[in-house]
Design a protein around this nucleic acid. Structure first.
Length: 191
DNA sequence: AGGAAGATCTACT
DNA sequence: GTAGATCTTCCTA
């Protein structure tokens, strides 16, 4: 179980979004371990991307986007916390939005957090997985490349067989490029 | 004060 | 499957 390094995130967000598929997010809460495999992501750029939180310039709440790659960027939309990881090269800004995961460890605990019966509905959306894992604003700016972080992303060795893409979901102004990526056929991809 | 925002839940046809 | 209410911050006036 290798923790992904800062170098992994210091690339074009589109590349990082694709390569994050199949990796595992591990969340530690006290002595409990919650984890899930990433099955759906979206890439966002900076000032050239009207759907990006960085589009209108640096603000207090989005300043972490200009910070080091590998940090968490968390913000609220429609009453849901959305989990992003900062990913960009030296002279640009970008993030990868985690849209869905496949639950692995701590499923009982996550069920409790979300009050749902069927596993399929547990983490198949960006706002759902954050609630299931107990992620909120407190974790904004967290570094996921450090061992012993409350959250890390590891390479389990899994290699996706087939990856599909589409336009991003829910955005009012998208770019003419398909920036959403997901594991084809996986039942935990959002609807 | 008012409204928009990478969404979700519920209650229907 | 779709339609509408509701979710909570942060921006703009």
């Amino acid at each position: 179980m290798k923790i992904l390094s800062r170098r992994f995130y210091a690339r074009n967000p589109k590349i990082v979004a694709i390569e994050l598929l199949g990796k595992v997010i591990v969340r530690k809460v006290g002595n409990k371990k919650l984890s899930g495999m990433i099955v759906e992501t979206e890439a966002y750029y900076g000032d050239k991307d009207p759907a990006s939180r960085a589009y209108k310039g640096k603000k207090k709440y989005n300043s972490v986007m200009w910070d080091l790659p590998g940090k968490l960027f968390i913000y609220m939309v429609h009453g849901n916390w959305l989990l992003n990881i900062v990913a960009h090269g030296k002279d640009s800004v970008g993030v990868v939005l985690i849209r869905a995961i496949e639950p692995l460890d701590g499923i009982d605990e996550m069920m409790k957090n979300r009050k749902v019966k069927d596993i399929e509905n547990l983490t198949n959306g960006p706002g759902k997985l954050t609630r299931a894992m107990g992620i909120d604003k407190r974790l904004n700016g967290f570094d996921v490349t450090k061992r012993n972080s409350e959250i890390v992303v590891v390479d389990s060795g899994f290699r996706p067989k087939s990856i599909a893409n589409s336009y991003r979901i829910g955005v009012t102004k998208d770019l003419p490029e398909k920036l959403r990526f997901y594991l084809k056929g996986n039942r935990f991809v959002s609807k």
